[in-house]
């Protein structure tokens, strides 16, 4: 599993990355009331807004961690955004993307580096 400094996580399976927000991000956001996910087929550019997670008070962008195309989204979190706070690294995943260049995955932070980042 890899992490971005904007508090997204990625898990890689072949050239498909599953993307979500970290436990740290989830705890900072608190109870989520709305999630806006990208559409399947959407081409994402690293650093662009891919999804939006909203709490009572604020809307936060979730950025695309790498370049790629959205191939699936997690309808369960759209229906019930609290799934994210319950299990941000598992059932609370947001979308899957086919990476343009899977090798870029290795350029992201590992867990130790991310833990240092949020410390």
């Amino acid at each position: 599993m890899k992490f971005t400094d904007e508090h997204e996580w990625l898990r890689l399976d072949g050239d498909i990355a599953t993307v979500g927000i970290t436990e740290f991000a989830s705890s900072q956001l608190g109870d989520l009331v709305f999630v806006d996910l990208p559409k399947a087929g959407a081409k994402l550019k690293k650093g662009s807004a891919a999804a939006v997670v909203e709490s009572v008070k604020t809307a936060s962008d979730v950025y695309a961690p790498l370049n790629g195309e959205v191939i699936a989204v997690n309808d369960a979190v759209s229906k019930d955004p609290t799934v994210i706070s319950g299990d941000p690294l598992g059932a609370g995943w947001l979308y899957k993307m086919k990476l343009d260049n899977p090798a870029d995955f290795e350029t992201l932070m590992d867990e130790a580096a991310y833990k240092k980042h949020i410390a």
């Binding site: 608190g30 109870d31 009331v33 709490s55 009572v56 008070k57």
Partner: peptide, 12 residues
């Protein structure tokens, strides 16, 4: 204080 550990939703 903008919120306590309970969070905005539960505090409301």
């Amino acid at each position: 204080p903008v919120q306590y550990p309970a969070g905005v939703l539960k505090e409301h």
